[in-house]
């Protein structure tokens, strides 16, 4: 299984789990389906991009940083879309998104087959 697929899978799983935590908030339950879909797609995008990064750069630390940065960015986009509806949940969306991105970045570094390299000479 290559790193792109690993990123896609774990991004989807973690995205679903992260989105499901919205059920703890009664005010968010009405839109839970949308939250789940959005969180899953966000996770998959972060996963694929982290997987791509993992194929190029073999460093757990940088993988975590890259994943966290992606998670933070896409979480910001989601939070910004929420503001259009008059809701301000930047902290509640971006902070978990940041950590989930870091986890995805870590997993894509540790798992999956790296890009095959040709022998020099």
């Amino acid at each position: 299984m290559n790193k792109l697929v690993v990123g896609l899978l774990f991004g989807a799983i973690l995205g679903v789990l992260d989105g499901a935590t919205a059920w703890a908030y009664p005010e968010a339950r009405a839109g839970i389906v949308g939250i789940l879909i959005g969180s899953t797609v966000k996770g998959m995008i972060v996963g694929v991009l982290s997987g791509w990064f993992g194929r190029k750069v073999h460093s757990t630390a940088w993988g975590i940083v890259f994943g966290a940065a992606l998670g933070l960015f896409f979480a910001y986009l989601v939070a910004a879309m929420q503001e259009l509806n008059g809701q301000h949940h930047y902290l509640a969306i971006m902070t978990p998104g940041f950590v989930v991105g870091a986890i995805i970045g870590f997993l894509t570094q540790r798992m999956g087959t790296p890009e095959s390299r040709t022998q020099a000479g």
Binding site: Y25, T60, T95
Partner: peptide, 21 residues
């Protein structure tokens, strides 16, 4: 260590956001 640390960080964030929302 690292993975468990990140998961713990996620749970801590969720805990914090939920109980201090």
């Amino acid at each position: 260590r690292v993975l468990l640390g990140l998961l713990a960080a996620y749970l801590a964030v969720r805990f914090f956001l939920y109980f201090f929302r």
